[in-house]
Amino acid sequence: MTEPKHYFAPTSLDQAVECLKDGDVTILAGGTDLTPQSQSGKLRIKQTLMNIRRVPELTGITLEGDEIRIGALTTITEIMENALVKQHFPVLVEACDHFASDQIRNVATLGGNICNASPAGDTLIPLLVLDASVELASMPEATLYRHSMPLSTFFVGPGKTRRSLCELVTGVRIRVPGPNHIAHFHKLGTRPALDISTISIGIAGTLKEGILSNVRVAFGAVAPTPVRASQTEKALEGQRLDAVTIGKVAGIARDEVKPIDDVRATAWYRKEMIHNITKRMLSHVAQA
C-alpha cells in the first residue's frame, strides 16, 4: 500500500514551490482526477501530498496588458461565468459547457485539466487554438523563478507534460485576440456532457474579407496528446473558404490524424469524423 508520509496545505506560492523542491510530491488541486486515479491504484501518491487549494496566487482571472491570465486553480464553472472570458474567448466557454458535469465543473481546475494532459481534455483544444501559454513557477535556489512556455509544446504524452517535478503550473496566459478573430470548438460525443470526446476540433484564425489567416487548428482524441494540425493549418492559411477549399482541407485533416481504436470508436470512424466535422465547421465559418 502506498501512502503519503506528509500532508501539506500551503497558503502561499512560495511555500508551495518550496515544498516541490524535493520532487517527491503529488499535487492536489480540484481532485476530480486525482481521487479516482489514486483510489483505483492507477496513480501512486508520492511521499508528500500537497493541497494547493489555499494558494491565493493561483486564483483569479485578470486582464494584464493585452493578455488575460487565468489562475491555475480557476474552476471550469468560474471560467464559464467570467465576464472577461465570455467577452474574449467564447470558444473556451463553449468547451467548458461540455466538460463533464456541473458537479465536476464546480471543482475541476484549469491547471488540473492541463496537467492531466488527457488527449481528450476538453479545455485543451480551445486553449491550443488561442495560442495559450502555460505559466510555471519553481524555486531552484532561494527565490521564486517563473517562466512560461507555449501550450502547444507542453504535452508529451497521455498524462505527461514538460512540467518538471519541481515546477508548479500557476496559470495560463492568452493574448486578447484582435479584430476579425474567429474561434470555434466542436466536441463529438454521444451526449451533451458527462462524456469523453470521440474527437474534438478547434479552429481559430483571422477572417477578413473571406480570407482566413493566422490559422490554428487543433484536434483532440486522435493522438497521444491534444495536437495542433500543421498540415491542415497550412492548407487553410490565406485561403478563401469556398466549397472546393473546404472539401480539400477536410481531406487533408482526415489524412493528417493518426487515431487509434478504443472502446469509444475505431480509428476509421475518428478519421471520418475529423473530415466531416472539419468540413461542417469551416462551412459554418464561411457562411457566418
Binding site: T32, L34, I104
Partner: peptide, 8 residues
Amino acid sequence: SLNSCLMF
C-alpha cells in the same frame, strides 16, 4: 455542488 467521492 460537487461529487463528494472526488473530494479529498
